[in-house]
Design a protein around this nucleic acid. Structure first.
Length: 469
DNA sequence: TGAAATGTTGGGGCG
DNA sequence: ACGCCCCAACATTTC
């Protein structure tokens, strides 16, 4: 039997259920990646993301070749290309791992239908989540709408019947072959070539998770809020592109806990809880696909003002609020932003600038390497007070206070806002408080070197509360 | 995964 | 020694 392994957002060999099944069941397996021309043209993904994905594919091609497999790729309309590849290579079956986004569900339905029409079968597998949307339901059989309840069910389910681990490495096939795949460059795909700020590919991902498990995970529960420290795993791009298996990551983390004992417990379980949030938001998107365009619950705030200039200042990181600007510049420069800072910039867009949270959501999708519809939408709705477990409307982040609490010495700010590099820790969170003398001394004139705050936080947040039902 | 306002407590300076 | 005030530190309430 001959099979086609269709790679999508699972760009790894280790613990890849579809790939393992294909290798188990077929005499010959053809690995395929299909670049979707309409998606590339839509600019829904940013340059960092495309460059990262190509890096992952490059590593995947290398790893496949050491198993005697040669990655093939196509470019065009993804649905047509996959079906055409299946027909031209005369495979009996196409294998892939399931995706839970509304657009992907529809795409996969059409591919399966077209394949069947040509006498080719399709087999799909669970991979991006630990528990699929239908696996965890309330006692009444309805979907959970609260993270807390979902979380306790998730852990109970894990303890009661730990999901069997996916086959860690597929059976080695034949001899290693020369890696002769010539993948397109970012330039070929119409995107600028950028230096990678995150090492791409499964090989780098495995190294990164090992480093995180060796130390930082121990204090993750507290230190994760500090953008000035290297305290988070920074693995989100790998989970987005499947260069790491999420179920395997959970198992490995629990093995770390078993090895080190209770001192590591809050760190390890806190980190796994973040993966549970991922499952939860996939589950919400599956059961309530309308959230892609609508609020999950009615917005408490009725005064959205669509001001392009304020939005542009937010995008560019020149709002005059150092933590906000550092976060947005980190995003623009590296394709990633620390999670605490994501919450602060999101709160600021909604509750200080009074812009539509969907604008922020879209900007994140276009710039984050880890851009994922479910997680991004869920988190934006949470910040906008329209989501599940929504932050109450009256909970508003104070950018200066968040900055003092979580970047006390201003080191994160100085890393991404060079105009402020000589401002002292005393003024770094609110440089507009400097006297003219202070501004001279720190080589930072407010209004020319660095902007004055574009809004008055007190007034803006009071106005927000006033327009909240 | 809030922040500000308000309330409570306790130590220390001082007359 | 005592009462008074101030204020920091912490807890509670409110939006």
């Amino acid at each position: 039997m001959r099979g086609l392994m269709w790679f999508r957002r699972d760009l790894r060999m280790t613990g890849n259920p579809a790939l393992s099944a294909a290798l188990r069941e077929c005499d010959e397996v053809i690995p395929l990646f299909a670049f979707d021309e309409p998606l590339l043209r839509s600019r829904r993904f940013g340059s960092h993301c495309v460059n990262f994905m190509l890096g992952c594919l490059d590593d995947l091609a290398r790893r496949l070749s050491s198993h005697g497999l040669s990655l093939t790729w196509r470019r065009g309309n993804q649905i047509e290309e996959v079906v055409r590849a299946a027909r031209e290579t005369h495979v009996d079956c196409v294998y892939w791992n399931r995706d839970y986004e509304p657009g992907a569900i529809e795409r996969d339905r059409r591919v399966r239908q077209d394949l069947l029409h040509h006498g080719v079968s399709a087999r799909t597998f669970k991979d991006h989540v630990v528990f699929e949307p239908e696996e965890l339901l309330t006692q009444a059989g309805t979907p959970f709408q609260r993270y807390g309840a979902y979380r306790s069910r998730w852990w109970a389910r894990w303890q009661q019947a730990e999901p069997p681990p996916p086959a860690v490495l597929p059976r080695r096939r034949g001899r290693a072959i020369e890696a002769s795949v010539h993948l397109p460059s970012a330039g070929d795909l119409g995107y600028p070539i950028m230096p990678l700020r995150f090492e791409a590919g499964e090989t780098a991902a495995r190294r990164a998770i090992r480093c995180f498990f060796d130390g930082p995970i121990r204090n993750y529960a507290i230190a994760r809020n500090r953008p000035d420290l290297e305290a988070t795993s920074r693995l989100s791009p790998h989970f987005r592109f499947g260069t790491l298996s999420i179920p395997l990551a959970v198992r490995s983390a629990l093995a770390v806990l078993a090895r080190h004992g209770t001192a590591w417990k809050t760190g390890v379980t806190g980190w796994i809880d973040e993966l549970v949030w991922r499952d939860f938001f996939q589950h919400i998107l599956w059961h309530f696909p309308r959230v892609v365009t609508e609020p999950f619950r009615p917005a408490p705030f009725t005064g959205i003002e669509n001001d392009d200039q304020l939005f542009q200042a937010w995008c560019d990181g020149r709002t005059g609020f150092p933590l906000i600007d550092a976060g947005m510049r980190q995003l623009n420069e590296t394709g990633w932003m620390h999670n605490r800072v994501r919450m602060v910039v999101a709160s600021f867009l909604v509750k200080d600038l009074h812009l539509d949270w969907r604008w922020g959501e879209e900007y994140f999708m276009q710039h984050l390497i880890d851009a994922d519809v479910a997680a991004n939408n869920g988190n934006w709705q949470w910040c906008a007070s329209t989501g599940t477990d929504a932050m109450p409307g009256y909970r508003i982040f104070n950018p200066a206070l968040q900055s003092k609490t979580f970047d006390p010495r201003g080191e994160y700010i100085r890393r991404f806002v060079p105009e402020l590099s000589r401002v002292t820790a005393h003024f770094i969170h609110q440089p507009e408080h400097m006297t003219v003398d202070d501004q001279e001394r720190s080589a930072c004139r407010i209004g020319s070197d660095y902007p004055a705050p574009i809004v008055d936080h007190q007034a803006a947040s009071r106005r927000y509360l006033h327009k909240t039902s």
